[in-house]
Simulated assay, not measured.
Amino acid sequence: MGDYERALADIDDIRSRMAASTVFHGLGPAALATTGGLAIATALVQGALIAVPAERPGLFFAGWIAVAVVSVVLVGAEMVVRSRRHHAGLADAMIFQAVHQFLPAGAAGAALALILARFAPDALWMLPGLWQILVSLGLFAAAPSLPRGTLIAAAWYFVAGCAVLMLEGSAPTLSPWSMGVPFAVGQLLLAAVVRHASGDHDAR
């Protein structure tokens, strides 16, 4: 490796270290709050249009997967804009770190959905609770680089996921509200935490 390549590698290493020790201000309250609203809206629509979700699990989960995709796009777009504004030259490294921290939980959620749908469709009722627990684990993993209050939202998702598994385990079924309420509350909590942290950051 030449001196030029070595210097570039050292710069990348420094950027990575700085990103790891910097609080990420790329998450935006507007997008997070919008995703919470989408969760409630989806629960309302499914409650009105799908009489027995357990009889149409494909349609039920297709709706929530669509919401997840839209939410990722909204949060990701705002994350890029805010990262450029708050982190300047570290923006790319900060975004990469944030995605890297959440990626295992997202991959695990997708894998669980495919496995249960293919090999254990009778256990699909567990998926909402499991997804919430995975979101919790992703937030706990990312907590060191996110605003301190993020732990509150992470704890909420963990408790909500366990509660959904316990409540629906007594009579296994699918309910749009077992998805809508936990995710709406969790995203609104995150939005409040990020908004408060953004205010402090701007004040400084």
Rank of each mutant, 00 (worst) to 15 (best):
D3P: 01
Y4P: 00
E5W: 09
R6W: 01
A9W: 00
A9L: 14
I11S: 03
I14M: 10
T22C: 01
V23F: 00
V23W: 00
H25D: 03
A30T: 14
A31P: 14
A33W: 06
A39E: 11
Q46N: 05
E55Y: 00
L59P: 02
F61H: 09
A62L: 13
V73H: 04
V73I: 15
V75R: 09
V75S: 03
G76F: 03
A77D: 07
M79P: 00
R82P: 01
S83V: 08
R84T: 04
H86Y: 14
H87P: 10
G89F: 10
A91Y: 09
A93Q: 05
I95K: 07
H100W: 14
Q101E: 12
P104I: 15
P104H: 12
A107P: 09
A113V: 02
I115Y: 08
I115G: 02
L116Q: 00
L116M: 05
R118Q: 11
F119A: 11
F119L: 10
A120S: 09
A123V: 04
M126K: 04
L127K: 06
G129Y: 11
L130A: 15
W131L: 15
Q132T: 15
L134P: 03
S136G: 12
S136T: 05
L137C: 11
L139H: 02
F140M: 06
S145K: 08
L146M: 13
A153V: 13
A160M: 02
G161Y: 00
L165F: 03
M166S: 02
L167F: 06
E168S: 08
G169K: 07
S170D: 08
S170W: 10
P172Y: 08
P172V: 13
S175T: 08
W177L: 05
G180Y: 12
V181K: 07
V181I: 15
P182H: 15
A184T: 15
V185R: 05
G186A: 08
L189M: 11
V193F: 06
V193G: 05
V194Y: 03
A197M: 08
G199H: 13
R204Y: 06
